[in-house]
Amino acid sequence: MQTQTRKIMQDGVWQNNPIFVQVLGICSTLAVTNLVANTLVMCAALIFTVSFSSATVSILRQLTPRNIRMMVETLIMAFYVIIVDVVLKAYWPDMSRSLGPYVGLIITNCIVMGRCEAYGISNPPGRAFVDGFFNSLGYTYILLIIATFREILGMGTFLGLAVPFFSGPHWDKWIILVMPPGAFFVLGILTWIFRTIQFRKEKTSP
């Protein structure tokens, strides 16, 4: 069991990382990477949704007829997303407004469906939960890297606080990084670096 959990962990975070290797689910979340705070909240929402819906799908897996399972999975996902949305609206209305429709779009985020389909439907609930958790964690840290680059270089702040050198007069702010094209560039370059490292490793290990 211990080794199995470890393997799930490594797979989600590095070997089979949802963003770099599977290129899944970048749609709705790339949009919130202009500020680190937004990214943190969005990713927390995603981790919650993925792990719980994967576990729920797994609990119900014997009861779900095969040919309507997509519909059932979608409804389970929507159920958790509504919880997140309502809680955010009630306790943190500013954040809810600045995330706009993207919280709702977690439903169509391919990574949620991907984990439910690939893992939740055929494994026991506990492991499905762990798998969902680490896959979304692997997703989270990359978005955090992107958001950090974009916020520091583009606005000179980190979590809204001024960063010494980058907010000073000697640093020309890279406005382009806060605008949509910046997200594409940063993710493209990160993918390049990550894949190059993976290819190197493959070459050295037999």
Partner: peptide
């Protein structure tokens, strides 16, 4: 995906 993302940018 890498090059596609940069083109999209």
């Amino acid at each position: 995906p890498g090059i596609a993302l940069i083109i999209a940018g």
